[in-house]
């Protein structure tokens, strides 16, 4: 079993590192908010998605939530893990009695907590600025989607970190992975404007499924708001990534 006192002290430090890093504050926290405001200002009117016609802002709030969650979990975590590995921090921790599980769980917890905070922030902005609402009945479904998505993308982050050799390469590599997928997965561009072959490619990857799972609670107010199929695909990606990460995770710097 994991030592909760130890996990709490590690988590406090990892969360402080997150908030005190300008890169986290600008790219993970500020950028999704700026993107929501810009997209809502550029694109007007309505869009057709999942057989429903919805206001474009109702489309973009869960879309940019996808961006916020993936930035907080996958992008930020991968960069932090590679940086801490290459600077020797992870290696140093391995020579102390702190269990590996505490170091890993703490960093993942930061990803999930920041993803929840970003989602709440975007939800509030969506409601206040654009009148986008989530019915109480589907709110639990939305929270489940945020947590499952963030946890899965943390696992993907741990797996991808093992493939990146230097701290300098972490930002370009993670952005190269997510940026094209954001465009074809309906995060930046409404789904009805994406050619079907690109949607088909996007359907293989987890970003489109997370975006769909986050959208359901907004546009289907009468169900439970749980897109079980999409969440299962996201969770499957996370599980496979976790198994890969557990096999290949590295604690010592690659560049010595």
């Amino acid at each position: 079993m994991i030592d909760h006192r130890l996990l709490a002290s590690q988590f406090r430090c990892d969360l402080r590192i997150f908030w005190r890093s300008p890169q986290s504050r600008y790219f993970t926290v500020l950028l999704p908010i700026v993107f929501l405001v810009i997209f809502a200002a550029i694109f007007k009117g309505r869009t057709r998605v999942d057989g429903q016609v919805v206001d474009i802002t109702t489309y973009y709030v869960p879309g940019i939530m996808t961006l916020g969650i993936i930035s907080a979990s996958f992008v930020n975590l991968t960069q932090a893990i590679v940086a801490q590995r290459e600077s020797g921090v992870l290696k140093r921790a391995r020579a102390t009695p702190v269990p590996a599980s505490v170091v890993i769980a703490s960093r993942a917890a930061v990803g999930v907590i920041v993803a929840l905070i970003m989602s709440a922030l975007l939800l509030v902005i969506g409601r206040v600025a654009y009148g986008v609402r989530v019915p109480g009945s589907t709110m639990p479904g939305l929270i489940i989607a945020v947590v499952v998505g963030a946890a899965a993308f943390c696992c993907i982050g741990f797996a991808v970190s093992t493939r990146i050799g230097t701290a300098e390469a972490a930002a370009p590599v993670t952005n190269l992975i997510v940026l094209p997928l954001y465009f074809i997965s309906g995060v930046f561009v409404p789904e009805d404007q994406i050619p079907s072959f690109l949607r088909g490619i996007a359907a293989v990857f987890p970003i489109r499924h997370l975006a769909q799972a986050l959208r359901i609670p907004f546009i289907h107010p009468h169900g439970a708001g749980i897109a079980a199929g999409d969440l299962l695909i996201v969770a499957a990606w996370g599980t496979v990534a976790l198994v890969l990460a557990a096999r290949t995770f590295q604690w010592s710097p690659r560049t010595a």
Binding site: R20, S87, R92, A95, P97
Partner: peptide, 24 residues
């Protein structure tokens, strides 16, 4: 270690407290 740079965002005191929490 020969080369190890602790996370620059944490203060000296916070790092000492974190490491103290690792040990019995």
């Amino acid at each position: 270690l020969q080369s190890c740079t602790m996370p620059g965002e944490l203060t000296v005191g916070e790092l000492f407290e974190l490491y103290a929490s690792y040990y019995p």
